[in-house]
């Protein structure tokens, strides 16, 4: 088990280095001059040259990368935006909570829908609930989330006026005037983004959970448990759920990691200042430090969640833990 963990940590570190390197290389392969862009229109060549020096863009690529790693390790610094000169760390610090709020809330919501629906439709295949669940799944999978988001904004937010149609409010209450904040406002403003995120994924997870539960139900050891005289609910809780959640956990881990890198469409549709929205702004401006910062965070979250999945998996399945 210890060895398994060490190996995982090693791979996580390796992936981290590779991901940031690739970002740097891609950036330098793309023919663009951030210095010119940063300097704005019609500037003198000496100003551009100055900016270039300031941003260390005159150095060879490996030195720039080394500088980035050094600053990161030594000062915990991600550098400064080429565009507005703000520390990337500060920018990420503001954007991560937004994205995380959307993702965590959305994931909680879709799991809350998918787990019971998936399990119940697996236990009663072909029942009315299973069939209507399947229709919901079909709709959820076929509808793009942007479209769902827009429909929700129009119907719920605009026509019915039940919810705000955008803007992000801080979870932590502040008393600044004109700034909305506090858990109530936070959730109220995030309701539509959450639903938008949840619809598609809930459908997918319902299907996944249904399939996994049905498969586990047909396992020999489930029959053994029933032959022992265990009640259906006990069989489900003690023998089926844990085994059928193994695959779900894997996919959930991957999804969480990916989503935390930025839910681009939802952030843009609802005007949420998250990582995805920032990435969309930074990319065309070649704002390398910001892009690298976001890529770094996304990689880190994917790695972290994969790692957590592995640990969870080992905990769930003794065959891995004791191998």
């Amino acid at each position: 088990m210890t060895q398994y963990l060490i190996r995982r940590i090693f791979w996580a570190f390796f992936l981290f280095v590779v991901a940031t390197m690739i970002t740097y290389v891609i950036f330098f392969v793309v023919p663009a001059d951030p210095a010119t862009l940063a300097a704005g229109k019609a500037t003198k060549p000496e100003i551009v040259a100055h900016i270039r020096r300031e941003l260390h863009l005159n150095l060879p690529i490996y030195q720039q990368y080394w500088l980035f790693v050094w600053n990161l390790v030594r000062h915990g610094s991600f550098g400064y935006s080429f565009v507005n000169g703000l520390p990337v760390r500060t920018m990420l610090g503001q954007e991560i909570p937004v994205t995380a709020s959307i993702v965590v809330g959305g994931v909680v919501m879709y799991l809350a829908i998918a787990i019971p629906t998936g399990v119940i439709s697996a236990l009663r295949p072909r029942s009315i609930l299973d069939r209507s669940g399947m229709i919901f799944v079909l709709v959820g999978i076929s509808a793009p989330s942007v479209w769902i988001g827009l429909i929700l904004i129009y119907l719920v937010g605009f026509r019915l006026g039940w919810t705000p149609i955008g803007d992000y409010c801080n979870l932590k209450p502040t008393h600044a005037i004109g700034v909305c904040s506090g858990p109530g406002q936070w959730a109220y403003h995030l309701l539509l983004p959450w639903i938008t995120l949840a619809v598609g994924s809930a459908a997918l997870y319902t299907r996944l959970i249904r399939a996994n539960v049905m498969e586990t139900m047909s396992e020999d050891y489930v029959r053994t448990a029933r032959a022992k005289g265990a009640s259906p609910s006990r069989v489900l809780v003690q023998h089926v759920l844990r085994n059928s959640m193994l695959q779900v956990v894997t996919i959930l881990g991957m999804d969480l990691g990916l989503l935390l890198g930025g839910v681009v469409f939802i952030e843009i549709v609802f005007g949420m200042p998250g990582l995805g929205a920032q990435l969309v702004q930074a990319a065309p401006r070649f704002d390398l430090p910001v892009i690298v910062g976001i890529v770094l965070f996304a990689t880190l979250s994917v790695i972290t969640f994969n790692f957590l999945v592995d640990v969870l998996y080992a905990w769930l399945d003794p065959r891995i833990r004791l191998a």
């Binding site: 020999d220 050891y221 029959r223 053994t224 032959a227 023998h239 085994n243 769930l316 003794p318 065959r319």
Partner: peptide
């Protein structure tokens, strides 16, 4: 009591 054919799959692997 019941005993089944395949002892490899008839016991719950995670318990």
């Amino acid at each position: 009591g019941m005993i089944f054919q395949d002892p490899m799959t008839s016991l719950n692997p995670v318990k």
